[in-house]
């Protein structure tokens, strides 16, 4: 899938593939017990992202031009980075190991006490809204900033187009 995204030149197909990729990722998340994450990925990653990208394609162009050089340097760089990361995984705890360090710190506390402390059965909700509430506040701030940014970028665009349309009209009026 990812290789197809690399190779394909039609941006429409690329965007569709990335949507499918997100959906498959969501299915994998369900398989790995992360149901909340899967919901979000399916709705936001596969849904909203795809719509946003299709909108961009509608406003710009649908076809990627063929580059006139062969990208050997990036390929070498990627292979080197991949090899380094691969070496890094050799020390990782195995998949599903209950004794991995990640499961020893605060997670047991959350699992055992958060139903009493917060009173909601879904622990992900407990942590998201309560223990890590500041994270969520920061997230909202980021979304707000991004929204303002997009408005600032695209709002001016609409005004400019309107102005040029007005000018077209006035020019047209002058001519006839």
């Amino acid at each position: 899938m990812a290789v197809a995204i690399v190779r394909l030149r039609s941006l429409f197909a690329v965007v569709m593939l990335s949507g499918i990729y997100s959906l498959i990722a969501a299915a994998i998340f369900v398989q790995l017990d992360a149901v909340d994450v899967a919901f979000t990925e399916a709705a936001v990653g596969a849904g909203i992202s795809t719509v946003l990208m299709l909108g961009t394609l509608a406003l710009t162009t649908n076809h990627e031009k063929i580059p006139h050089y062969t990208p050997y340097l990036p390929l070498v760089l990627v292979v080197l980075t991949g090899a380094a990361l691969f070496y890094g995984t050799l020390d990782m705890p195995y998949f599903g190991d209950p004794n991995a360090p990640i499961h020893q710190h605060v997670a047991p506390h959350y699992l055992e006490l958060s139903p009493q402390e917060i009173g909601i059965k879904n622990i992900v909700t407990n942590i998201l809204a309560s223990y890590r509430g500041y994270d969520t506040l920061g997230e909202v701030t980021v979304i707000f900033t991004a929204g303002v940014g997009v408005l600032a970028l695209l709002g001016g665009r609409r005004r400019k187009r309107q102005r040029s349309e007005d000018m077209d009209k006035s020019v047209g009026g002058g001519m006839f």
């Binding site: 790995l32 017990d33 992360a34 909340d36 994450v37 979000t40 990925e41 936001v44 990653g45 909203i48 992202s49 946003l52 990208m53 909108g55 961009t56 406003l59 710009t60 990640i102 499961h103 605060v106 997670a107 959350y110 699992l111 622990i123 992900v124 407990n126 942590i127 998201l128 890590r132 994270d135 969520t136 997230e139 980021v142 979304i143 900033t145 991004a146 929204g147 940014g149 997009v150 970028l153 695209l154 665009r157």
Partner: peptide, 28 residues
Amino acid sequence: SNPLPHVLILTAIVVGVATTALGLGLVV
């Protein structure tokens, strides 16, 4: 399963879409 990474990634997905939207706005 450990719920903490789920929470972190939940946040990250939404932030990711926000940055994607901003990036696409820049592209336009």
